[in-house]
Design a protein around this nucleic acid. Structure first.
Lengths: 232, 232
DNA sequence: GTCTATATCTGGATAGAC
DNA sequence: GTCTATCCAGATATAGAC
C-alpha cells in the first residue's frame, strides 16, 4: 500500500472549498440564522466569512469593525445581523467550523500501521489541510485568546489533541522498536510548532518559493533523523 | 573556554528588569513624554507598560481600552496622556523597545568560534532572553499586524535577522566540515519556529514543568542530530 | 504632575421602510 | 431578505482645576 500523499490528490479528495464550509456553517446554525433558503444563505455566508477572515487576519478580529465587514462583504449592516446576532457570535461560528475540520486528520490515519508511514502521513495531512484552509487555521490560532471561556477551552484541547496524535505515533514506534526512545512530550510540542509555522508565516515561505510538499518532506526528514539516530 | 550558558548567570549578566527597560523607554522618548523628572517618569512607566503588556497579552492590544489600562496601572486617563499622545504611540513605544533587545543576542556570540558552540549559544541566548522578557516577545509577535507600515517592516526584518544569525552559523559549520550539508533556509526557519514556541505557548510548557534550560537542551540535541547525522 | 469632568466620535446593535 | 436611518454605550482624547 502506498502511504505517501500528494498535495493535489489530498485536495481533490475533500470538500473543503469556501462554499462547502459555508454550507456546513449554515446547517450547523439553522436556529440562529434568520435566512431560511439554503441557496441564498450559503451565497451570503461565503461573502461574509470570506470578508471576515480576510479582514481579521489582516488586522485582528477586534480591530475589524462591522462597518468594514459590511463594506468588504457587500452587504448592509442590517443584512449581516440576519446571519449572526452579535459580533461575538460571528467569532464563535468561525471558531467552531475551524475545530470541526480536525476530524479529517484522524480519518487520514486509518488503515496505516507502520509507525514511520503513520508519522509521515500525520505530518503531511496536517500541513496539506492547513494549506487549503490557511485562513481558518490562522484565524483560529490568532484569535484564541479572544474566545469566550468555553470556546477557549475547546481550542486548547484541540491543540493538545492533535499533538497527542503525533506523540502516540512516536510511542508506538518506540514500542515496535523502529524509533529511538525520546522525550515524546517535547518532540511532539516542537513538531506541532513546526506544523503551525507553515500557516503562521506564509509570507516567509511564499517569498522563498517553498511548496507545502517540500516543507512536509523536510519536516519528516528532520524528525526522522532524530527518531532513527543511534542513541547519543 | 566554557561556552555553555546557565540561565541564572545569563539573567544576572543583563539589566533587563522592568525598571531598566522603562528607563530606556524614558530616555528614548524624552521629547514626547511630558514628565521631565526621571524618577517619577520611570516609576509610572513601569506601572503603565506592565499593565499594558498584561492586558494586551491577555486580550489583545486593540481590545484593551485605555480605561482598562488606567485602572490596571492605577493612573488616571489624564496622567496616561502625559506619557504618550495616542494609543498608537503607546504601541509604537512598546514595539520599539522589544526590537532593541535583539542586540543582546549578537553580543552573546562574540568570542565564540566553534560552530557547534555558536549554534548552542545562539539557541540558549534566544530562549533565555525570551524567558526573561516573555511579555515583550509575546506582544511583539502577536501585535505585529497592528503596527503602522514602518514598524511592521522593521518587525519582519528583525525576524529575518535573527533567523539569519542561525543560518549563518549552519553555513559556517558546513564550510568547516563539522555539519552536514542541509537546506539552511528551511532548517533556520523551523528552528526559529521552535524558539518562538517557547514564549507563544508558555501555558503548555509551564503545565508540563519544562524549564527553559531543559527546552534549550532539547532543541540543541534535536538540531544537532540532523546536522551531524550521516547523509541520508 | 495628577486628577476630574467633559467634548467628540466610533462602532455595535436595532427599528421599520421597502 | 435587504436596506437606510438611528440609537446609544463606550472609546479616545482634552481642558482646566488643584
Amino acid at each position: 500500500m502506498d502511504t505517501d500523499l500528494k498535495f493535489e490528490t489530498f485536495r481533490r479528495q475533500f470538500c473543503l472549498s469556501m462554499e462547502d464550509l459555508c454550507r456546513e456553517v449554515f446547517l450547523g446554525n439553522r436556529e440562529t440564522i434568520k435566512i431560511k433558503k439554503e441557496g441564498v444563505a450559503v451565497k451570503n455566508l461565503v461573502k461574509i466569512l470570506d470578508a471576515a477572515l480576510t479582514l481579521s487576519n489582516a488586522k485582528g478580529f477586534a480591530a475589524m469593525s462591522l462597518r468594514d465587514l459590511s463594506r468588504e462583504a457587500g452587504l448592509s449592516m442590517g443584512a449581516l445581523y440576519t446571519y449572526f446576532s452579535s459580533k461575538e457570535e460571528l467569532l464563535h461560528m468561525i471558531q467552531r467550523q475551524s475545530a470541526m475540520v480536525i476530524q479529517v486528520l484522524i480519518d487520514q490515519l486509518r488503515d496505516i500501521d507502520d509507525p514511520r508511514a503513520r508519522l509521515r502521513r500525520a505530518i503531511q495531512a496536517h500541513l496539506f489541510l492547513s494549506e487549503i484552509l490557511h485562513q481558518w487555521f490562522y484565524f483560529a490560532y490568532m484569535e484564541t485568546k479572544n474566545l469566550a471561556k468555553e470556546d477557549h477551552k475547546r481550542a486548547i484541547e484541540s491543540e493538545l489533541f492533535t499533538e497527542k496524535i503525533i506523540t502516540d505515533i512516536m510511542a508506538e514506534g518506540r514500542k515496535a522498536g523502529v524509533f529511538q526512545e525520546v522525550d515524546t512530550g517535547l518532540l511532539g510540542a516542537v513538531v506541532k510548532a513546526m506544523l503551525q509555522d507553515w500557516y503562521l508565516k506564509r509570507w516567509k515561505y511564499a517569498r522563498r518559493k517553498v511548496t507545502v510538499e517540500k516543507y512536509a518532506e523536510f519536516v519528516v526528514e528532520f524528525v526522522e533523523a532524530y527518531l532513527l539516530a543511534p542513541q547519543s
